[in-house]
Simulated scan of single mutants.
Amino acid sequence: MPEKAPFPVQAFRPILVCIIGMLAVSCVFMTQAIFLELAQSLQVEETRARLSFSFTSLFYGLSFLLVGPIADRVHQPRMAFGGAVFLALAVLAASFVHDFQLFLVLMAAVGMGASAIPASMFPYMVHTAPPERMGAFVGMLLAFATIGVIVGRLVVGLMTSWWGWEVAFRVMAGIVLACGICVLAFLPKPEMELPADGSGFFRLLLKPFQLMAQPKIITLLFTGFLLFFGFMGMVTFLTYRLAQPPFFYTAREIGLVSLAGLTSLLGAPLSGAFSQKFGWYKVAVFGVSLCLISLQLMGWTASLTPVVIGILMVFLGVYGAQPSIFLEISQSVPIDSTGCASSMYILFCIGGGSMAATLLGPVWNAWGWTGVTLACTASLTASLAMAALAHRRRSAR
């Protein structure tokens, strides 16, 4: 880390980065488990209550186009603190609202505030991690961000069942604010020299598109997009598959089966470390290939055991490949573009997952689980091809 500090403080800093990243993602996904409670409280249909997550995720993704370039120009811990304050205030305000339209506006604000945290903390981790452990640290942050999805759904769902969604929101707001204060207090500014740049605001907005104009960067971004299209498509429609014959599982049983994937998140830090040792391409190919094998296990069987093994393998594969791709993107751009590049990668992954849920709906209706399996297999195969193409291209760094 950039400043000399006692060992406990040095060890605490990367953990703090991971925790606030996890909390940001938790706030994005926290409404998914409480649509019914929101519908009853705000007096709308449950289908309309689902718009709360749609607004949050939409503004979360689009905000990376702005906060990514900004993260390369500001004190990153202060940016994370500002995002945490904005996020906490939006969540807190939402807990007092009883008008659904205003609630949606605040959910959009939640997405915007949440985006500032990973946009600043991912490049911060890259800049401050010991060079020999950068891959492991980035992998750990990616793993915690994924755990945030589960925490948002599970913890907020439990608190809602105990005390109501309003109290659950207020508790989350307090935790986010407290963690933001810790970030400001304990995380020093990274020691890196950025080139003098008098770029104006509109020039700053062009930066993501300038990065996407680089052949290697856009290829790596689409590698992540296609990876998440196949991954999220399979995981999303697995819920419907397990509710059908021959399984007939309840929502609770499906949730327990899906939790098996969490054990594979341990692979993300290891993948980051292996990427530095063996090269990003070998690790990415191994991870995506593991995903392809897992899809065949889940796609062509009517037994629970192969499905559980497939879930374990697909999570291990995705979060084995993702840190390696992320690191290659970070190392393929100038140091003053790391925040923008990492934000674009997050945006492309979110876009891939969202598009899978949308485009595979008609595929499911027309051809069922077989159609989804074939479509996701094609997406992962295309991701492998993109990785191979990126491996051959030179970076602009």
Rank of each mutant, 00 (worst) to 15 (best):
G279P: 08
F144Q: 00
R397V: 06
L226P: 12
L226G: 10
W280Y: 15
V149E: 02
P208M: 11
A382K: 00
W367L: 03
Q101K: 00
P8I: 07
S63M: 11
V314K: 06
A366W: 13
L177D: 09
L205R: 13
V97I: 14
T301Y: 07
E46P: 12
V25G: 05
M313Y: 11
T305F: 14
S330G: 07
I15Y: 08
Q76M: 15
L256Y: 15
T160I: 11
L238A: 03
L205N: 09
L58E: 07
R394A: 08
R78T: 15
A260Q: 06
M386R: 04
P131N: 02
S379T: 06
T146P: 01
A93W: 12
I350Q: 01
A382Q: 00
A11R: 06
L42R: 15
V151R: 03
L295I: 01
M355A: 04
S289H: 09
L104P: 02
P14H: 06
P2W: 09
S41T: 15
L360G: 03
L220N: 02
T160M: 07
G148F: 01
K207C: 03
L295T: 00
Y249T: 00
P8S: 09
L154A: 10
G371S: 07
A178T: 09
T31M: 11
L262M: 13
E132M: 03
F96D: 02
P190S: 06
Q296L: 13
P130F: 00
A284H: 05
V307N: 06
F53R: 01
L384F: 02
L58Y: 14
F55L: 03
L154W: 09
T377L: 13
E37C: 08
I335Y: 05
I335S: 08
T263V: 14
F209H: 08
L16A: 09
Q244A: 08
D72E: 10
L304K: 13
I117S: 11
G180I: 14
L102H: 10
R392Q: 09
H127T: 00
S52C: 13
L87S: 04
Q322R: 12
G157N: 01
V171W: 04
Q276H: 15
A273Q: 11
L292P: 04
T160K: 09
A114C: 07
W369P: 06
M234L: 08
L204I: 00
M134D: 01
L297K: 12
F201A: 00
F86A: 15
I34F: 04
P131H: 02
L194M: 12
L292I: 03
A185N: 11
L295E: 01
